[in-house]
Design a protein around this nucleic acid. Structure first.
Lengths: 337, 337
DNA sequence: TTGTATGCGTTATCAC
DNA sequence: GTGATAACGCATACAA
């Protein structure tokens, strides 16, 4: 028996069944595109749908089919192109898979937990950037991006240590720098730590003892703070491997303003290949990660997991690419310059 | 009678009711934080919840309460900081309102329609960037961002024409330029058209006939194409008002490489104040919009609409701010450089 | 080809 | 305080 449809409290499948003169089962069938409905009835139903401006209830459907056709994506923030690209890759692939995406940006610790809890309530699976205690224990399929794998949790990432090793090596051998420093907060993110590992590896391979990292957040002002140190002579170095481009750019700008020549006096390299990196002079040598592909991969893995696949034990890592410009000491003039 | 709970097909409110030895009504009450449950029962329920790792079904809840506690956001893309900031503002405000956000990036025309249709199915209201035929007719509350209002549809935007008028005036009177061109595809977006209107207004106020706009997309390569025209002498101009910063930056870079002096030979201004704008030399004069606030406002308006407020007939516009650097001809040295 | 009836997992209105 | 139980709006197995 149809629920009361007295009030104009939203058109339901019952209303269209009524005005089309068929049962709700039939309405449901034509809406699903079932082939076993007569053309005539199909038309009647479609007409009713159009007439009533019928909009199905996603909640009711999800409840009936027992899944949400929605994936969650949890990002720490959205500054700079990195996370945006990740999001694009994820959303695009999800759209291809005909899944909706719910986004949550990690705010305060407390808000975050609550937001994540309700997120888990509305999706089939979640992709998190970095490791997150709660999400991981939500029971739903999870893939962590650029974080560490755990039992039963898949992890994917872009290559970090090898790229950093190459970059460091480039500075050490190709440019003969002898006093490198890594700048970035290696405690803040797993991938930063890995970049530092590449940095140390390149040193150790040559019998050098790797210097301690110079702590700095990603913000621009942290970069200028580091530059001040350099300018004041409190931080001797002839090359800087920065945790990301924002940092590198900020340091470079302040240094240049302060009269030091990059890369003559000090070489600087970054990570991410943001737009500014190719507009600034000297062009910033950096590393380009396949960020969009990473996002797409996250959606793909989630899809497999949700479809019942067992989480793979080893994490997949996508290759990154060193982009040489001239802040490392190489001559300018490369095409991408 | 409780549905069969034989299989481990996900823990439901019935399972926790069972293991807690209470009714589902009671479970629901403690989960809602109802005050009229005894402390003892509360504890029992909470224990059961913890033991079973119970995760409620958002779909079931939405169906019961007849709303989704979710807002949809439809963006054309996510290149550059503009949309990202809009998204941040929207998500942040939505989170404060305890709403989830579903994001859809407009892909192909066809995919888009389908995606929007199902989006409407899962949310209480939708914020769209620009005008979108389908969303507007979805029946759900809609607010359009940076587009035109229609009957029953709220619109919000950042100030465009006045900013453009000011910028143009600055070039015309403060720097005595006489041959300005507006570059950008004014047919592509409502706000670009408005910027062009400001451009023409400044001309007309002085009895000048405003030149036709130079068509160009937002992509960088379109900017370099325009620069080639200039370089070849096919486009006489001593000042360019570009539709956005990416365009301005690309033009400026190609021009500089081609040996023309900015701003001596030609002044260039942009729009958006992207990060590169302050790192590049000369610093790019541009306009900063309150993008994040715009996103937050969208969420706010949506919230009011969903709460039953009548859509306001006039659109709200947030003030933008001209950022003077030196690509317009002003001397460098301002704090923001 | 179409209709009937039931389940999906909550919330909320009654009773007790 | 707590427990039945009726919606909520759809999908679908089973009948017809």
């Amino acid at each position: 028996m149809a629920p009361r449809n007295d009030a104009r409290r939203g058109t339901t499948i019952y209303s269209v069944a009524d005005t089309a003169g068929v049962s709700i089962a039939t309405v449901s069938r034509v809406l699903q595109g079932s082939p076993l409905v007569s053309e005539r009835t199909t038309r009647k139903v479609l007409d009713a749908v159009a007439e009533l401006d019928y909009l199905p209830s996603g909640a009711a459907r999800s409840l009936a089919v027992r899944h949400h056709d929605t994936y969650g994506l949890v990002l720490p923030e959205l500054n700079g192109p990195y996370y945006a690209e990740l999001l694009v890759g994820f959303e695009t692939r999800a759209a291809e898979l005909e899944k909706s995406v719910m986004l949550v940006l990690a705010g305060t610790k407390e808000d975050r937990d609550s937001a994540l809890r309700t997120l888990a309530t509305r999706v089939d699976g979640i992709a998190v950037f970095g490791s997150d205690a709660y999400v991981v224990s939500s029971g739903k399929p999870v893939v962590v991006i650029a974080g560490h794998a755990r039992a039963g949790i898949e992890a994917i990432a872009a290559e970090n240590v090898e790229g950093a090793r190459l970059l460091t090596e480039h500075l050490l051998v190709d440019h003969g720098r002898t006093n490198l420093r890594f700048v970035g907060d290696i405690a803040a993110a797993a991938d930063l730590l890995e970049r530092y590992e590449g940095f140390t590896a390149a040193h150790r391979e040559r019998g050098l003892t790797p210097p301690e990292p110079v702590r700095a957040e990603f913000r621009e002002r942290d970069g200028t703070a580091v530059a001040e140190l350099l300018l004041a002579g409190d931080l001797p170095a002839d090359a800087l491997v920065c945790g990301n481009d924002e940092l590198a750019l900020a340091v470079m700008a302040r240094l240049t303003d302060g009269g030091v020549d990059v890369p003559e006096d000090i070489a600087i390299v970054g990570w991410d290949d943001v737009m500014t990196a190719r507009y600034v002079r000297p062009g910033l040598t950096t590393v380009r990660q396949p960020v969009q592909e990473l996002g797409a991969l996250a959606a793909d893995r989630l899809h497999d997991l949700v479809s019942g696949a067992a989480p793979s034990a080893e994490r997949r890592v996508l290759a990154s690419e060193v982009v040489i410009r001239s802040s490392c000491g190489c001559p300018p003039g490369h095409p991408a310059g």
